[in-house]
């Protein structure tokens, strides 16, 4: 097992190792961060606002004098887990529809594909805005909105994969044997889609992080008293003229998370980056 891990790491290009480090770092922060936070997330602990780094406040304080480090540690939890949840849900739903469409074919495929084509024609951020306007933006709703927004994209990729596989002889063999659609979907087709689907989950994760932090940045995402990394950028936007840490740190946090994930996915692509 450890041997596999070391050979995996050795074969990973440098960009992939950087990506892996960043992703593992942020996952760890999201899991353990809040317990490491030196201050309570909502406490006004500094008389000064937008103060710089100091021994008391490692990453300075925000526009209300709250500890930036603590807020980022908490905020990353919202960002990471909302995105992870939405990405996984979107891939599960999209892939289920894709398998149904590919294996049933005929009008089932026509109807599902046409519906997904419709949803994919609504640019994801626009769709998310309409959903927010309609439903609001509580945490469960945001999870739902992000999921719905990225189901069609995953469906399209998963359907293309499944269609290629269904056309292969081993699926014909299973059909000729008399296997039912569930066996064909789960035992014959799905196992051959796992790698690209994992990569797609990673991509959706990046998209959802960008979408939700974008929404929060517009004030339409995670609402106070909760705050994800995007909300932190928004609430501290007035500090931009002084280049406050309170705005730079959460923005960089998002960027390192998404860039890291993207570098990792790219390095894991079959055939490497070339």
């Amino acid at each position: 097992m450890t041997g596999k891990l070391t050979s995996f790491l050795r074969n990973l290009p440098a960009s992939g190792r950087i990506g892996l480090t960043l992703v593992v770092f942020w996952l760890a922060i999201a899991l353990a961060g809040p317990s490491l936070a030196p201050y309570s997330v909502g406490a006004f602990v500094d008389q000064d606002v937008f103060s710089g780094a100091s021994s008391r406040f490692w990453l300075g304080s925000d526009y209300l004098g709250r500890d930036v480090l603590s807020r980022v540690l908490w905020g990353s939890r919202y960002t990471v887990f909302l995105a992870l949840g939405a990405a996984i849900l979107a891939v599960c739903i999209g892939t289920s529809f894709a398998l149904l469409a590919a294996i049933r074919g005929g009008w089932t495929d026509e109807v599902i594909s046409r519906a997904m084509d419709t949803f994919i024609s609504i640019p994801s951020k626009i769709f998310a805005l309409v959903l927010v306007a309609a439903f609001g933006s509580s945490l469960p709703l945001l999870l739902l909105i992000a999921t719905l927004t990225y189901v069609p994209g995953n469906f399209r990729i998963a359907r293309a994969l499944a269609m290629n596989l269904v056309a292969l002889d081993f699926v014909q063999v299973a059909r000729a044997r008399g296997e039912g659609p569930v066996h064909i979907a789960l035992r014959e087709v799905l196992p051959n889609m796992i790698h690209p689907l994992l990569a797609d989950t990673g991509l959706r994760f990046v998209f959802v992080v960008l979408l939700l932090s974008g929404l929060s940045f517009l004030g339409l995402g995670v609402q106070p008293p909760h705050a994800d990394l995007g909300s932190l950028v928004r609430e501290n936007i007035s500090g931009i003229t002084e280049g406050a840490l309170a705005i730079i740190v959460p923005a960089l946090a998002i960027a390192t998370l998404t860039v890291g994930a993207n570098l990792l996915i790219d390095a894991l692509k079959p055939g490497g980056k070339a």
């Binding site: 931009i240 923005a251 960027a255 998404t258 860039v259 570098l263 980056k273």
Partner: peptide
């Protein structure tokens, strides 16, 4: 590849804020 890969994953508001910070501020 690394440049575009990073740029695609960059939130727009980060690029915009950095732009403001550098070119305006």
């Amino acid at each position: 590849n690394i440049t575009t890969l990073s740029l695609v994953a960059m939130p727009e508001f980060l690029i915009a804020t950095l732009g403001v910070l550098v070119f305006s501020v």
